[in-house]
């Protein structure tokens, strides 16, 4: 007899239904299958009206974010044999629901628009020269596939209403702040506008990141420390001002 797994998939169209419910499906198990394979099987063979969002199926695009057995994860990267044969799949809870497993993550583009884009220094000779060791730090943040699982798991985003931009956006700001030739300091705006102080570094974002980016240690804390330079440490500020002056003189 062929092996089966049980999927409990959240179903709701909020424009019609007040409440959603879990619908149970049975899917044949294939060796090495991931949760997305099972969900796609349901969508293609059992109920084509099931709304799912997926794209690359290779953990490179970050489309198929969902909550699997209560943990935010990528469906394409979660092997069925690691989560058992009775799996509950629900949509990301931090974002407004569109339908079934699909949520509206559009607010993230609005936040990204508020973060100043890469602003190169003006004194550069073309072509630019940079050292590999300087590139490495920012490169970590560029692994981000914008799956927004960190936003989903972040209790500040999910459970409270604050100005905090969220982990993804601090990572984005850090990716440009730590670019060796960038001239902006985004920690100021993160602190003043982006609600950086609302992050209490509880590190869930770092735990769920499918790209294993050290979100808290390398992006958020670093940005917080830079904000300290700007607002809480007059000594650091003085040194910094002197340096900028030196550079502009040079």
């Amino acid at each position: 007899m062929e092996e089966k797994i049980i999927l409990n998939i959240y179903r709701q169209d909020p424009s019609i239904e007040q409440k959603g419910q879990l619908q149970k499906f049975e899917v044949p198990y294939v060796d090495g299958m991931v949760v997305l394979d099972a969900v796609r099987y349901v969508q293609e063979k059992l109920d084509t009206t099931l709304a799912i969002r997926w794209n690359c199926k290779a953990a490179k695009c970050g489309s198929c974010s969902a909550e699997i057995n209560g943990m935010p994860r990528l469906m394409c990267k979660t092997r069925v044999d690691t989560v058992g044969h009775n799996i509950t799949v629900t949509p990301m809870g931090a974002f407004p629901l569109i339908k079934d497993l699909v949520t509206d993550v559009g607010e993230n583009w609005e936040i990204l628009r508020k973060i100043p884009k890469f602003t190169p220094r003006e004194d550069m000779e073309s072509p630019w020269k940079m050292q590999q060791m300087d590139v490495e730090r920012s490169k970590e943040f560029r692994k981000c596939i914008e799956c927004f699982l960190c936003q989903d798991v972040c209790h500040v985003i999910r459970e409270h209403s604050t100005p905090y931009f969220g982990p993804r956006h601090v990572v984005k700001a850090a990716s440009m702040d730590m670019h060796p030739l960038d001239s902006e300091d985004r920690s100021r705006m993160l602190d003043q506008v982006g609600g950086l102080g609302f992050c209490n570094i509880t590190k869930c974002c770092q735990d769920v990141c499918p790209e294993h980016i050290h979100i808290t240690d390398n992006a958020i804390i670093q940005e917080k420390e830079r904000a300290v330079d700007n607002f809480y440490d007059p000594l650091a500020r003085l040194i910094k001002r002197k340096k900028t002056k030196e550079r502009s003189v040079a």
């Binding site: 209560g70 798991v153 209790h155 459970e159 609302f198 992050c199 209490n200």
Partner: peptide
């Protein structure tokens, strides 16, 4: 208890509470 755990299911306790983080 902000948050109690990363697992979503354990979060009920923090929902609806006021939160001011590190402000």
């Amino acid at each position: 208890n902000h948050p109690r755990a990363c697992e979503i299911g354990f979060r009920a306790e923090t929902k609806g509470r006021e939160y001011t983080g590190e402000t």
